[in-house]
Design a binder for these strands. Structure first.
Lengths: 141, 141
DNA sequence: TTGAATGCAAAGGATTTGCATAGAG
DNA sequence: CTCTATGCAAATCCTTTGCATTCAA
């Protein structure tokens, strides 16, 4: 949904500077097929010859989330993972090899039930997190 | 589903000793209406006058998860939370006051879709995590 | 030039590990 | 008495904070 041009436009609108690091950061995120942790981001940038401090990555993530460009994902371990806020989707996480795959499911019934909760429990649901855990075809014996 | 007697029976079967700490641990978990973090468990035990080291709590959690008595829950922050593995249910988490409430939803369509993924993607789904985030009635302006 | 962005050091919080000791069975 | 369970100290990993410096606009 949000391609890199789109993101750069947002940054420009917010008068955020297009530093070399930020450019690499946006590119990296837009090219990644899976959510990335801070350590993922750091090591990938390093292989590209871009030296960045972890603090910068943490702060960049913070800014991007505030802008609605990035989303946080929980994949079960201690770290947090991040991916571009694009079409709403979920993940298949292999418990064996930890590979993460995107998955698109029909949420109509889920949304219906959320509306029901909104009404009946007076709890206003703003978002949900739904992840599936199991064994991918390679790890499934 | 698993009441304390049930749990003690499992422990006995596994020849695990019923220490004072373990007794308090089981009681605490069975009485808590919400998932607890390690720091939660430590501070509650302390108010009950039971002095336990955090290492013990971590190890006890590890054992209980291995036995299938405990389940890990992710509520969005850095910590992990734990609750007795009882009927499968989900949580409403208030983004404002962080209060956690159990919620029971109809998962039939979700399960159907999981079976579809099992077939089509050759990814064998073993479990899922589904949490709802929003504003509870007290925090909803 | 100027404030946003960065790097570095250090602190903070959650979790894990190694080892010696205590205590349930 | 024996082996599980525990406590303590220290290490590790992830994240946050404070402050001085750099650099895009």
């Amino acid at each position: 949904m949000k391609d890199t041009e789109n993101i750069f436009a947002i940054l420009r609108a917010k008068k955020m500077r297009l530093t070399k690091t930020r450019f690499a950061f946006v590119t990296l995120l837009s090219e990644s097929p899976t959510p990335l942790s801070v350590s993922d981001i750091l090591s990938i940038l390093q292989t590209k010859g871009i030296v960045v401090d972890k603090t910068t990555v943490y702060r960049e993530i913070e800014r991007f989330i505030a802008l609605g460009i990035l989303e946080e994902v929980s994949l079960g371990d201690r770290k947090k993972y991040y991916e571009l806020a694009s079409e709403h989707h979920h993940h298949l996480i292999c418990l064996e090899c930890n590979r993460v795959e995107d998955i698109d499911i029909d949420e109509s019934t889920l949304v219906q039930q959320e509306m029901k909760v909104n009404r009946e429990k007076k709890f206003q649901i703003l978002k949900h997190s739904l992840e599936f855990f199991g064994l991918c075809n390679k790890c499934c014996v």
